[in-house]
């Protein structure tokens, strides 16, 4: 019994000791090295590093929906059906969102293609309890489907409401499985999914660049929506590269962000309609 008591105190002392050592060393390390970028929050980038962003020119955009379909095909999105549509459960990573102002005979309308805004300070990654959503080093907000527990907190925290949830397992007729893009996994039921700026394309472009022994070029990597846009209203590129169209357009006087006042710093920039 005596020895038991001693060891109990020993545990305590040892534990507090480790905690203290950890605290001190942790703070020391945080000062000594640049913090890595897997969580949320951003850091200044060095030239040559990438910060992928998108500019959508609403003056050119016609709301045709090609981007929506291209995104769906590229990312093997669930097909949808009337029941899901009436329940508001259609999964589309990129949606055309309408808004109306005014009345007949002078109404105004805005059709706004909305992918994930890829915030630099994402409200969704903050609240994830299991690291299933995170902001990667190049600014893309990712989602780990196989770790997600489906609590849907990130969906509720997102002020843009642009993530989707798999209410049930997607239904795929056997014939259509042949059309799966092999670069993108099929999501199971009960997990959250979202636009990843076609991250698999970035990975492929990087692999190709490495194989060819050259740095990644500006146009090597385009998400499906930007690639297909018939009006060329979607411009995608590296915001950290001053020569890229995306970087320049994002500084256009017409540029604005959705819900700018919330300080989420989206990397999807819109250009206002009008001259």
């Amino acid at each position: 019994m005596e020895s038991l008591t001693t060891s109990r105190n020993g545990f305590l002392r040892g534990l507090l000791g480790t905690l203290g050592v950890f605290l001190l060393s942790g703070i020391g390390k945080a000062w000594g090295t640049a913090p890595r970028d897997a969580g949320h929050g951003k850091r200044p980038l060095k030239p040559g590093e990438h910060r992928w962003g998108m500019v959508i020119d609403l003056d050119k955009c016609t709301g045709c929906g090609s981007c929506v379909v291209a995104c769906s095909t590229e990312n093997n999105l669930a097909l949808g059906n009337p029941q899901e549509a009436s329940m508001g459960r259609i999964i589309r990573w990129l949606k055309i969102l309408p808004s109306h102002e005014g009345e007949f005979p002078t109404p105004k309308q805005r059709l706004l293609p909305m992918p994930c805004q890829q915030c630099d300070i994402p409200p969704c990654t903050k609240v994830c309890p299991v690291y299933a959503t995170f902001r990667n080093e190049e600014g893309i907000v990712g989602q780990v489907y196989s770790r997600c527990i489906g609590c849907r907190y990130c969906l509720n925290a997102c002020p843009y409401t642009c993530k989707d949830f798999n209410w049930k397992a997607p239904v795929w007729p056997e014939e259509m499985r042949a059309s799966f893009n092999p670069d993108v996994s099929i999501r199971p039921k009960g997990v959250v999914e979202k636009c990843l700026f076609c991250h698999h394309r970035l990975q492929r472009a990087k692999e190709e660049a490495v194989a060819e022994g050259r740095p990644l070029r500006e146009n090597d990597y385009q998400p499906a929506c930007a690639e297909i846009c018939p009006a060329k209203a979607i411009v995608f590129g590296d915001l950290n590269n001053n020569d890229s169209d995306a970087a320049n357009l994002s500084k256009d006087p017409r540029a604005f962000h959705l819900l700018e006042e919330l300080g989420t710093e989206p990397k999807v920039t819109y250009l206002k309609e009008g001259a």
Binding site: K126, V130, I149, C151, N166, G190
Partner: peptide, 26 residues
């Protein structure tokens, strides 16, 4: 009720194995 609400109750233990303390759920 939180477990009932989870899309993946089978992965509920992830909160211990991959817990992230910035989340109010944690």
């Amino acid at each position: 009720n939180i477990i009932l609400d989870l899309g993946r109750p089978d992965r509920a233990l992830n909160v211990f194995l991959a817990g992230r303390f910035q989340s109010p759920l944690m």
